[in-house]
Design a protein around this nucleic acid. Sequence first.
DNA 1: TAGCTTTATTTATCAGTATAAATATAATTA
DNA 2: TAATTATATTTATACTGATAAATAAAGCTA
Lengths: 264, 264
Amino acid sequence: MEFCSLPTNTSGMGQYDQGVGKRSDRIANDIKRWVIENELAAGDKLPNEKQLVDIFQCAKGTMREALKSLEVQGLIAIRTGPSGGPTLIEVSYKRTTELLRNFLQFRDVSVEQIYQMRKIVEVELAVSVVGLLPPEAIDKLENQVGKCCANSIDRSRRHVHLNLRENELSFHDILASYCPNPLLAFNAQFLTELLRNFIDFRFDHISQYETFTQSNIDFHRKLVVAYKKEDQKKIRKLMTAHMEDCEQHTLSLNGTLSKNLMLS
Amino acid sequence: MEFCSLPTNTSGMGQYDQGVGKRSDRIANDIKRWVIENELAAGDKLPNEKQLVDIFQCAKGTMREALKSLEVQGLIAIRTGPSGGPTLIEVSYKRTTELLRNFLQFRDVSVEQIYQMRKIVEVELAVSVVGLLPPEAIDKLENQVGKCCANSIDRSRRHVHLNLRENELSFHDILASYCPNPLLAFNAQFLTELLRNFIDFRFDHISQYETFTQSNIDFHRKLVVAYKKEDQKKIRKLMTAHMEDCEQHTLSLNGTLSKNLMLS
DNA sequence: TAGCTTTATTTATCAGTATAAATATAATTA
DNA sequence: TAATTATATTTATACTGATAAATAAAGCTA
């Protein structure tokens, strides 16, 4: 979509206008409003920095702060060079989880609370994708379980354990990727991300870790079978038990939520 | 907590250092890391703009972009004047919901999908706060139901309907405020916010709207009774039915999610 | 002491310059 | 001609200095 001049400069004209709040914030909001009104979509380009400065009659620095705001919100990407400038992008899962982690940074969240959420989210998701999985999805899931098994031959070192958890969790990511409900899928992915990257384990219970891994493999295998039969009831039962089981293992391994949620 | 000099300027020194990404982003990350390492908390003050410029040996504009980033992320508030400058704040629910709405802006979310989420979140939340509600919480809930009744005398105009929805939803906000799980509480509040501010109704079915309102009042009243008895089973049943009922009413009123999610 | 005024401090905005990075285009080479 | 290299152009990024606005604290007035 072509750029067709931003509408009347609602955020004030001339320097030091009377509007409320910071100029850069008002400009950022005006640009958002303009994007919505013109039904722009990801991939569409905004006017470049210089043009925006002309349109809004503001200083370069002010405009840069406005653009930085949109960038941090995950709404635009900025590139240099010819045909560069600010481009609208779909706010990514990644960016959104980063911002949501900021929220959790200053609050205490326990492993129990993560699983309280996960027990309802993963079960609902698992049940809801029944009938929506194309053959290649089943393949992917089966493949995933296979990787876990292959890796479990060597299980004596720390990084292997980490790798196993990675694999276990990607089973759930695959399921989430076939969930048509963005709210549900996002929550599921956010929770698996927390477990993947922000749980500090004590690695002094290797045997328990092995049990954990084996238990996961069993559940995933059974889930694949149930998905092949599209047996919704069975899937609900299995995923509920699976989450319960994961929670217990994580707790007995003394998993705690990291204090570095803010850092990517 | 006092400011005690930021650590070695890891984001590079001198102009145009070789680090990856933008200088302002690296600085923002360094400040985050420093906050975590020094276990700063909401209320603590960061060095002011000029001091930060000295510490990071960067230009004022660059530092302002870094601070804007932190501000947009909801991590700091900036005030002018003496004893002003950037102050750490708890990332607020409000800010987080704004950022999450950006995420949904470019995806299609249906009323059914909102309720798919709400049916599991509100039920889990309702059940989990049993036994955690102090007497004043019950009072608040009862009060809330009372307001709905009072308002339902005059129900002929649009804004009254909006006001009723407002009241109905604040019943759920009260419940959420007593939920110790930030993940659960946040999700619940986010969903009620969507319903409160971002559902466009067609107001051509006044009678259905009345039925909706009355139905809500009934459910809320019954829920209060159940909370007084701390009857968890009853609460689960009631809330499940309540959400199901809400969904049906919303659907028959042709509620659709607004296209203006990005705007506050 | 209550209310008002001044002053000092700090961010917010403006203006302009210089540098780096990315890309398109032209020139060169094989 | 195809591929590579050099050049020019476009754009963001970064730096500097000056002015305006906001606010807290100190001082003044009644």
